[in-house]
Nucleic acid binder design. Sequence first.
DNA 1: CTATAAAAAGATAAAAAACTCTTTTAATCT
DNA 2: AGATTAAAAGAGTTTTTTATCTTTTTATAG
Lengths: 141, 141
Amino acid sequence: MFSKSCKYAIRAVLYLAIHSDAEHKLGVKDVAEALDVPGPFLAKLLQQLSRHHLISSTKGPNGGFYLSETNARANLRGVVESIDGPEVFSSCILGLPVCSSQNPCPLHSRAQLYRQGLLELVEDQTIKEVAERVERQELKI
Amino acid sequence: MFSKSCKYAIRAVLYLAIHSDAEHKLGVKDVAEALDVPGPFLAKLLQQLSRHHLISSTKGPNGGFYLSETNARANLRGVVESIDGPEVFSSCILGLPVCSSQNPCPLHSRAQLYRQGLLELVEDQTIKEVAERVERQELKI
DNA sequence: CTATAAAAAGATAAAAAACTCTTTTAATCT
DNA sequence: AGATTAAAAGAGTTTTTTATCTTTTTATAG
Ligand code: FES
Ligand code: FES
């Protein structure tokens, strides 16, 4: 479903939500080791998220990546769209050039249900909320 | 979501459901041109589906690919599983090594809704039913 | 102001997915 | 039986995704 990159990105954002804030920034290495993900590759992803203002970062000593309060109040949709592109939520499930009710593919109407589930997955709770649930219920990330 | 291969495969199966039967077989080229898909690549996919008995084929003059009655009474799940692997319906949406309610990831419970939609998409109608709907409603494939 | 720490950027490499070409096998027709 | 047709199988190639390595920029600390 999501690309590997996107999965890494989501997990990294959640990790930052739990373990970082403006006063406690984390280096790529910290996150990569905690999530068991290739470091230099994760660095690229975090840079990309940072460029899109979905996470925050500063350079230099005591620098690193973190989630600002604002970052944490967003949901995960932006993260997914930033890495995998916005089309994941709107493109035809059979790969036809356009997806529309005007000219639908055979799976179009049922694809709505699937998309609904997908959107709820990433939209109906903030990153902060997910992170808090992870802590309360000791979930794996 | 589905790989490109899988999308091609689904479309090809539907095309066969509509345009072929045991008495009217189609060559790879026919299908590839109709769907505007790379021919030799589609050939590989059809061979794979044929090996898994999801479509039928015969060699030689008047040979080709087609859907038997039995093939057409199945749903699309087998096609998807044959090309993309069965894990698409059961693997963790965040890429964790196992997906289970015992040790769930933060998105696990909501992922169920998404999976439900995905399964309905491919399971709740037979290939024949989809094909008939395509003909009745002149849908694109 | 200099040394240092860490992200940003750029350039490369490896692996996987998508796509192509060639040879072999099997069915049909004459 | 021999010629022909079309799938099956095998061996490449190209493109995209994933992963690594190196250099540059910027913020901080001393
Ligand atoms: S047209 Fe295929 S999903 Fe909408
Ligand atoms: S554990 Fe992640 S979806 Fe089930």
